[in-house]
């Protein structure tokens, strides 16, 4: 992002932070992102679903973190130096998303985003609100609200025991 862009009005519109989860590039609207931090020691919390890894200490604040790999149904992986926590604020709730790595901030105008194919029974689809085209690449646009939805919880609860 150039410096002049930064001061333009509506700097956050149509801007997406892209990140990697199991080799796929995803993007989330930059407006919901408050910061990106390195992976840090996580304290497990009982009774939480498997993707909710626990809580971390973000400068004195206790931040719940969820692993998007597990959330998206991908195989879990060891955390590395590249592993990051994207801190997002969704409807007043602050949550950390653990991703394999962050890439960049890209500008994707609305007309370059197409709706995802409407497939039934592909569970991961429900988090994807659109597919953005940047040059020859495609980025899957993730809906943060959907990630926090509660219905998911019950499902996982049932499979837990």
């Amino acid at each position: 992002m150039s410096r002049t862009d930064f001061y333009e009005e509506d700097t956050q519109a149509c801007r997406y932070l892209t990140f990697l989860v199991d080799g796929t590039v995803f993007g989330i609207e930059i407006a919901g992102v408050s910061e990106i931090i390195q992976i840090m020691p996580i304290t497990e919390v009982p009774e939480a679903p498997p993707y909710l890894k626990g809580v971390v200490n973000l400068r004195g604040k206790v931040l719940p973190v969820m692993d998007l790999r597990i959330k998206f149904g991908k195989p879990p992986a060891e955390y590395t130096d590249r592993t990051c926590i994207i801190v997002v604020v969704i409807q007043g709730v602050t949550v950390g998303l653990i991703v394999d790595g962050v890439c960049e901030v890209v500008f994707i105008p609305d007309e370059d985003i197409v709706p995802p194919p409407s497939l039934k029974a592909v569970s991961q689809n429900k988090y994807i609100t659109g597919i953005g085209k940047v040059g020859d690449d495609v980025k899957l646009i993730v809906d943060c609200d959907e990630i926090l939805k509660e219905e998911e919880i019950n499902e996982l609860k049932a499979s837990d025991f």
């Binding site: 020691p41 304290t43 909710l52 809580v55 206790v62 709730v93």
Partner: peptide, 25 residues
């Protein structure tokens, strides 16, 4: 965190948390 209220963490017997000297929770 409020986010955890939806799980039965408190019912399970966790009243809160604290940050230890080494920064861990």
């Amino acid at each position: 965190p409020v986010f955890l209220n939806r799980y039965e963490v408190a019912e399970k017997g966790i009243s809160g948390c604290t940050i230890l000297g080494d920064g861990s929770i």
